[in-house]
């Protein structure tokens, strides 16, 4: 009874996965051609390639992850090293990071639009989108980094102190290197989340498929491009599938990298 029911549920879930992937490949693959990533979009995205979208995605993802990195790393080091002797305070910060990581991105999008697009006068722009993504990424990255720093055994810290190494040196020469696989996994996770994000970006960096000249121009990321083609462009469905297939390939690649990093993280500790 239990066995049959559970296998039925399993078949439902994995059958769906097979169906989804098959659907993406069958509908999306015909749109792929040699110049898909490097040609400009034509006819509102219904034809041509996705070069402007690739550029916008790279700018949005890389810039926002880089901007979020110092805050997230600072927060993680603060919780695990500086507040090591104040467990209550450390726990309060950790819990608030957990809750912050769950704030719906569309709410951050509204704030980003009010603050950066309207307030700072950035309008629909890649920069406004990046700043909004930073709000979203900092808690996510902090939580992931903390997992890495927590996995570094306390004995390593004690050994460093016994040897007369300063805490600052211990941090940079021993603790962070020991946590490196987990820190890289946190970065990969952030790249994945930024690539998948749509709501926060529709509100801040817009849905333009023109090549951005600078970070002050609007630009659609790949996810936003899928949304735009499927939702607003009549006859854009075929190309939406192609872009969704490209997204799925990125997703699989990121997941494989993440799995490998997590495996090394376990070996290292």
């Amino acid at each position: 009874m239990t066995r049959v029911a559970s296998w039925t549920a399993f078949a439902l879930l994995f059958g769906f996965f097979v169906f989804l992937v098959a659907d993406l490949v069958v509908e999306g693959a015909p749109g792929l051609y040699a110049g898909y990533l490097t040609d400009a979009a034509r006819d509102g995205g219904r034809a041509g390639g996705i070069a402007p979208v690739v550029v916008s995605t790279l700018v949005l993802v890389l810039l926002s992850v880089l901007m979020a990195l110092p805050f997230a790393l600072g927060g993680a080091i603060m919780c695990s090293e500086l507040l090591a002797k104040r467990p209550g305070l450390s726990r309060a910060f950790r819990r608030s990071y957990d809750v912050m990581a769950a704030v719906p991105s569309v709410a951050l999008g509204l704030v980003g639009w009010m603050l950066f697009s309207e307030g700072l006068g950035l309008g629909f722009s890649l920069l406004s989108g990046c700043l909004t993504l930073v709000l979203m990424l900092v808690p996510i990255m902090t939580v992931a980094f903390l997992v890495g720093l927590d996995s570094v055994p306390g004995s390593l810290r004690e050994a460093c102190l016994t040897l007369g190494v300063t805490r600052w040196q211990a941090l940079w020469l021993q603790i962070l290197p020991a946590a490196r696989p987990a820190l890289l996994a946190g970065l990969a996770l952030a790249v994945g989340r930024a690539t998948a994000e749509t709501a926060a970006l529709v509100l801040t960096s817009g849905i333009s498929t023109r090549m951005p000249g600078s970070v002050l121009d609007p630009g659609a990321s790949l996810s936003v491009h899928v949304y735009h083609l499927a939702r607003d462009v009549p006859g854009g469905e075929a190309r939406a599938y192609t872009a969704a297939l490209a997204l799925m390939i990125i997703n699989v690649a990121l997941h494989m990298g993440l799995t490998r990093l997590r495996r090394t993280a376990h070996v290292a500790v």
Binding site: F71, L82, S96, A107, L135
Partner: peptide, 23 residues
């Protein structure tokens, strides 16, 4: 270098921790 280094960590950490609550 280490003293100003730790201050930077504090600053970045507190600022990062306050971003979303401010929002």
């Amino acid at each position: 270098g280490s003293r100003s280094g730790w201050s930077l960590v504090w600053a970045a950490g507190l600022l990062g921790g306050l971003l979303v609550p401010t929002v």
